[in-house]
Nucleic acid binder design. Structure first.
Lengths: 132, 132
DNA sequence: CTCTCTGCAAAACATTTGCAGTCGG
DNA sequence: CCGACTGCAAATGTTTTGCAGAGAG
């Protein structure tokens, strides 16, 4: 959460607005295409830079799809949490994993690992994407 | 686990041997470099293709590092499991998460998600990499 | 012999970066 | 005004692919 000055430019407003309008994870590529399609004039590099800034500030979550592409989403809390993500449309729900924090820490210590971090994401197909 | 014919070539034997010799996750790039350094004559594309085959057969695990690069490791079991991975040297321990399977399934159903899959990886610094 | 595998170089992609001009505060 | 921000194009780095020849079974 680097506390850096961030200027509110037209482009960043457009990005945040687009993210606020959905509960789904989106890739930088897709977001860029969507903004352009919506008439916004914005460069791809700007989208990447803005997203990186949001992640650094803790305002957005970034996870990796199976193919390695990064996908982003605004998060409603800075508390540690996980997601239930539709692998088709990206729609996601924030979820808590009751014991996982303590479990991971205990397990790591038992094996002599320090400076622990863990990722836990659940992928599935949401109701809307399930119907043929 | 596509059941496809796999021929035992010199290159594939070298790759499997290299993987068998370590408990650490390695990237295709690193594995390729290591094999070459060891005197093996092998192409990068071959390494990628062999690793993809091992993963498809369920013989190897593939996870993504934070930067998106894929890293691979032979797994001792085809049972669902997770890893405690050293983010420095890649050394990993297979671990079981007692409740996570049931928890993830129940959670997904409650939200109407089907065809569930989940990833859970713990990253830390192992004892060997911790000492300055 | 036949079909899979291999190597190489080219291609495909996602992401980052250098730079000169733009614009928010 | 000043420094952060932007767009573009070029650079980077990983992974994939096309193709002709090699080699496993």
């Amino acid at each position: 959460m680097a506390e850096v000055e961030r200027r509110a430019t037209r482009q960043r407003r457009a990005i945040e607005e687009a993210l606020r309008g959905t509960s789904a994870f989106v890739s930088a590529q897709t977001l860029h295409a969507r903004l352009r399609a919506g008439g916004e004039s914005i460069g791809l590099a700007t989208v990447y830079r803005a997203l990186a800034g949001l992640v650094a500030d803790g305002a957005a979550d970034m996870i990796r799809r199976d193919d390695g592409e990064a996908i982003y989403r605004l998060c409603s809390t800075t508390r540690h949490h996980h997601h239930l993500v539709c692998r088709d449309c990206g729609k996601a729900v924030e979820v808590q994993a009751p014991q996982d924090e303590a479990w991971a820490t205990e397990l790591a210590q038992r094996h002599g690992f320090s400076d622990i971090w863990h990722t836990l994401e659940i992928f599935g197909t949401c109701t809307a994407c399930a119907r043929p």
